[in-house]
Computed example of a mutant assay.
Amino acid sequence: MTDSAASKHTLEQQVFDRWPDSLRALFDGTSLAARVGFTASLMTTDANGRVRTSLLGIGELYAADSRSLCIALWPQARSARALAQNRRAALTFVFDEAFYQVQLEFERLPGVDDAGQTSGGLVCFRGLIGAGEAQRVRYARLTSGITFELDEGKDATLERWTQQINYLKEVAGRS
């Protein structure tokens, strides 16, 4: 194998403990309609040590600053219970032709606004980046990870996501 052929097969890795600008922009809570279909996998460990995965859409993720990610979960979700117990999770996704894995340590955010209301019954967590990694190779482009399309109720879903992001922004700003 020639040097140029070998370099084409080399795994490129980027390690980070702060969101790169492109990811901070992805999770900034804007342009939700343009980002429909983006899916991240949140992997937690339950009380029995089993790895559990929750799929999150762009309307459930918000980067409040360069080191954190706020998420909104339904309180009955296994991931919400697991985060309340052990506070650690990994978020994986495909973006910009790379595979990302981000290790986060979470805390629960206050869930009641000044009027005593919650945002649709969601529980919110803020995760601090412990370590993040992007991987890509030159010979193969990742074109997507897990993706989805919204069918009926697309407008209602986008409105709910907008409300969720606004709520995440509010509770993230208070903590």
Rank of each mutant, 00 (worst) to 15 (best):
S66V: 14
A47N: 12
T39S: 13
G49W: 10
S54F: 10
G49V: 08
A47T: 13
S41L: 14
R50Y: 14
R50Q: 14
L23W: 01
G29S: 02
D46V: 03
D46A: 05
L23H: 00
N48T: 12
Y62T: 08
V36P: 00
A25S: 13
R52S: 07
R35G: 01
L32V: 07
G29Y: 04
A34W: 05
L32T: 06
L32E: 05
E60A: 10
S41K: 10
R24T: 06
F38D: 00
R35Y: 03
G49H: 08
T44Y: 04
R67A: 13
L23F: 05
A25P: 01
R67L: 12
F27N: 00
A63Q: 03
D65M: 12
L26R: 08
A40Y: 03
L56A: 02
A64N: 08
F27R: 00
R50M: 14
A40T: 09
A47Y: 08
L26S: 05
Y62I: 09
A33C: 05
S66N: 12
G49L: 10
S22E: 15
L26M: 11
G37N: 01
T30F: 03
L32M: 09
V51S: 11
R52L: 15
D46H: 04
R52G: 03
M43C: 15
A40N: 05
M43I: 13
V36S: 03
D28S: 10
L32I: 08
M43G: 11
L26F: 09
A63T: 04
G29E: 02
R24F: 13
A34N: 12
S54N: 11
S54K: 01
Y62H: 13
L56G: 00
T44A: 06
S54M: 07
S54I: 10
G29H: 02
S54A: 15
